[in-house]
Amino acid sequence: MLDNDFEELARNLAKKFDCKIKLPESWADYFQVTGTLTGGPGDRRQFTRVQFRAPAVLEYSQTIPILPRARGQYLVYLKDYSRAGIALIHHEQLYPREQMRLMIPPNKDVAINGCRDGLIEVARCTRIQDCCFQIGASFIEG
């Protein structure tokens, strides 16, 4: 069920951070999806993933030495999480090993190493369509 708080938060974040994500039309109910996920072929994840649809903020600057990145904060859409990592939707391609700070909305029962914000490392990236990339990332200490 869509949480009114989420809607308001998403609107506020979108105003502040100029969201560039374009979700596919078939994902109209994106923020309403709940439940747990099962892995596909070759899925090596150790832990159950739980759907967690919410806006969040991703912050990064220089992530890996050979890839110049402008410092910025971006509105992203969280997708699901497990004990080890999180999946999110972003408007641009990210590369494995890039590290960045993820800030999670304060009103939900998800945390990165016990905190509302923390460091994640990109593990994989899949393009859904223009301006819509699914990022799989692991939580990292620190």
Binding site: G40, P41, G42, I64, I66, L67, P96, R97, R124
Partner: peptide, 30 residues
Amino acid sequence: SPEQRAEIERHPLIGFRDLVLREEASWAPL
């Protein structure tokens, strides 16, 4: 099998991940 195909299809990602932080890495060959 689908699992074996998925395993093989991970090799570009693994190669990138193993090389990207190396001092000698450069973008185009990567």
